[in-house]
Amino acid sequence: MNYQLNSVNLIYDAEKEGGTTALRDVTLSFDGKGLIGIQGPSGSGKSSLLYTMAGLKRPTSGQVFYGDMDLSTMPVSELASLRRRDFGFIFQQHFLINYMTVLENALVPLNMNNKTVKKKAMDFFERLGIAQYANKYPFQLSGGQRQRAAIVRALMNDPKVIFGDEPTAALDHESAREVMELLSEYTGNTMVVIVTHDEGLLENANRIIYVRDGEIIRQSEPGQEVSQ
């Protein structure tokens, strides 16, 4: 499904004097598939861009269209339903739920517990090398293993868009590469939007967006570089 951001501004504490501008007049469009990288220095607004696209933050002005749905005006409950149905999230912190096993955590987006979904989760776990930890609790796993479990959770609902905010930050380089390979497999029909500092992970990206001070300063696509 197409994505379109029209003149999006995001100002934190806009109602207060001296609010912080996170995004300035961002206009972008996506065709709903491929690996999209977002890069920029710390505090540049790249995570804000990701969360605004995901409907987790509402723009102060401008519009965010997902297909023909305007996320900037959509009611909160509909936004939540949309996220559950169409989006998958991998956050910088794993945010696994400590009182659930790794397997249960993976099943959370579907809130189901039958053989089919369990097998699906186990296949992902196999793929990411954490199958033996399926019945362990998150606090019994290393940071990397937890992050891989969080990635499985993001993939369980067959999302149309996967949002990753530094998803490989807790992983060693080799594991990070495996995760990116797994995510790349989805880019045929799915849009994978990744915020990362590690440009090496975006070597297969279809598009890289560079953000600084809330503005898109540059975009690169295979074979071309577009300045804004």
Binding site: A80, R84, F89, Q93
Partner: peptide, 15 residues
């Protein structure tokens, strides 16, 4: 709060 936040982000409504 982390648990509630992630569940909300994943798509579970506050209700």
């Amino acid at each position: 709060r982390d648990e509630l936040t992630i569940l909300h982000a994943i798509g579970f409504t506050k209700r």
